Amino acid sequence: MSESQQHATRQCVSCGINISGTNAARFKCPDCGNLIFRCSTCRKQSNLYECDDCGFTGP
Results as ranks from 00 to 15, higher is better:
1 M>V: 12
4 S>M: 07
6 Q>M: 15
6 Q>G: 09
7 H>Y: 12
9 T>Q: 12
9 T>L: 08
11 Q>Y: 05
11 Q>N: 09
12 C>T: 00
14 S>P: 05
16 G>V: 04
17 I>N: 04
19 I>A: 04
20 S>C: 06
21 G>F: 12
21 G>A: 14
22 T>I: 08
23 N>M: 08
23 N>G: 06
26 R>T: 13
27 F>C: 07
28 K>D: 15
28 K>S: 15
31 D>S: 14
31 D>P: 01
31 D>A: 12
32 C>V: 01
33 G>C: 09
33 G>S: 10
33 G>M: 08
34 N>E: 15
35 L>F: 09
35 L>P: 07
35 L>A: 13
36 I>T: 02
36 I>P: 00
37 F>I: 05
38 R>T: 10
38 R>N: 08
38 R>P: 04
39 C>N: 00
40 S>C: 07
41 T>Y: 09
41 T>E: 12
42 C>P: 05
45 Q>I: 04
45 Q>V: 05
46 S>Q: 14
46 S>T: 12
47 N>E: 10
47 N>S: 10
48 L>R: 13
48 L>Q: 12
49 Y>W: 15
52 D>K: 06
52 D>R: 05
52 D>W: 04
53 D>H: 09
53 D>Q: 12
54 C>P: 09
54 C>V: 07
56 F>L: 14
56 F>W: 15
57 T>I: 09
58 G>I: 02
